[in-house]
């Protein structure tokens, strides 16, 4: 029990004394996950919306595949990204393996099905007659989707929260693609694993606490934004 309390004390000390390495790790974690979430939102929300409103063959199959992607194990995503980015892989020329860029690609692949599937579901919750009404007001299909998205922004924000939550806490893919290289690709989750394995529980606890706090602050901000909009209703 003592080692837990001692770990907590030392962890808090590391946070409040402004340990440069710990903060650099936190900053990289945040950048990688926010960037990946942003890209996944930019692709996933329009993609999911159009899948929801468009009629096309094998639509149900496409939705099933995207839904399956929501449960994609991060290590599998990481493995495939590593193979593609490896020196002999098809994207080896990018030289992104063991770089934050490679980690972002892996995280986009993990977040994309989540955000796309939740966007499909959110858009399908819009009354089809509402969409048709917007079209009859002179909207192009893209404009009509945009108007509908503004109507379901609460649900779309929830999709963003879910996507970011999955990424900030993800360890398998960033470990494989990033390699957990000190000062380069070490993020909060991989560093926590490493420090735990090395028996440095105080550093591991500090990293864990920072991860929790970051996750909490980002989710708090998004939830605040979401509820403010809900309140405006």
């Amino acid at each position: 029990m003592d080692f837990i309390l001692s770990g907590l004390q030392k962890g808090l000390a590391l946070i409040f004394t402004g340990n440069a390495e710990v903060y650099a790790i936190a900053e990289l974690s945040l950048l990688v996950s926010l960037f990946a979430t942003g890209v996944a939102v930019l692709i996933g929300v329009p993609l999911g919306s159009f899948i929801a409103v468009k009629k096309f063959p094998l639509k149900k199959l496409a939705i099933s595949i995207i839904n399956t992607g929501m449960g994609l194990p991060p290590v599998v995503a990481g493995l495939f990204v590593m193979l593609f980015l490896s020196r002999n892989g098809p994207l080896g020329f990018l030289e992104w393996l063991y770089t934050p860029g490679g980690m972002i690609i892996a995280q986009i692949i993990i977040a994309l099905p989540i955000i796309t599937a939740l966007s499909v579901s959110a858009m399908q919750s819009v009354d089809p007659n509402f969409y048709r009404q917007i079209l009859t007001l002179g909207a192009s299909e893209r404009q009509a989707v945009w108007v509908c998205l503004k109507e379901i922004r609460l649900t779309v924000t929830a999709a963003v929260i879910a996507g970011f939550g999955r990424l900030i806490s993800e360890v398998g893919a960033v470990m494989i693609v990033g390699g957990n290289i000190r000062h380069q690709t070490r993020v909060l989750t991989t560093a926590t694993v490493l420090e735990t394995q090395m028996g440095n529980f105080d550093t591991a606890i500090a990293l864990g606490l920072i991860l929790l706090m970051l996750s909490f602050v980002i989710n708090l901000a998004l939830t605040f934004l979401q509820q403010q909009r809900a309140g405006a209703k």
């Binding site: 048709r132 009404q133 009859t136």
Partner: peptide, 14 residues
Amino acid sequence: RRAMSVVFSQPYLI
């Protein structure tokens, strides 16, 4: 579409 307007039985408002 831009020369016409449609009013449905339910008013769908943003």
